[in-house]
Amino acid sequence: MGIVTLKVNGIEARVDESWTLLEALRFLGVEIPTLCHHDGLTPYGVCRLCMVEIEEKSGTKLVTSCLYPVKEGIVVKTHTDRVVKGRRMLVELMLARCPNSKTLQDLASKMGIENIRFKMKNEDCILCGLCVRLCKEQMMSGAIGFIGRGEKREVVTPFRTKSEICRNCGACMYVCPVVELPCRGYNPQGELCNSCLRVVPECADEYGQIMCYLESCGSCVKKGEMNELVKT
């Protein structure tokens, strides 16, 4: 088992050479958003949120960290302008497709997306393929799969009828990143929620007390600090 050295956001780190870049970054505590990744499944690389920038001699290039094997001496930047801008646009695109997903709404709030510039659709699925891979790789069933191409792509059982090999185990539902309903925010369903960004919770005297739906987003603390700034 070899060890390779890489530079992540300016800090040198040593990681296992058999890892993917995403595994290494998460091991190092760098937060990388993903929707199609699951530790127990083969990486698929379709949500594109995990993309990071790698510096090369000829300039920088974007790579899919969930698929990219770590290499000796690579210089990684995880939150450059180009990456953050792209991630925001991707979440905006996904949210415009599935506005009723809590995961996507939370991601949007976390990234500070405050308006959606596309016409809202009302789909349920972002076609991340987690359910398809879980059913095949872990449940050894393969009861669902993709059909159609491009915009017509969807996840279905063969011939859209009840599959004979489906054991109703519910693993597909369990793994789905967008199936959760959103919390009730200011805006009606089907629009951007952003309630976490707007509310100033009473609990926000100290950072540790925050109990909002976002993990350590800190927006309420930020708002509290802003209020104090305004006062002084």
């Binding site: 695109l93 016409k119 076609l127 792509r153």
Partner: peptide, 21 residues
């Protein structure tokens, strides 16, 4: 391209759709 995109990744599937829109 929109017609021929395989639809696997989000920027190509959703992005070209919105570009065309």
């Amino acid at each position: 391209i929109l017609d021929e995109s395989c639809g696997k990744c989000i920027p190509c599937r959703e992005g070209t759709g919105r570009l065309s829109e």
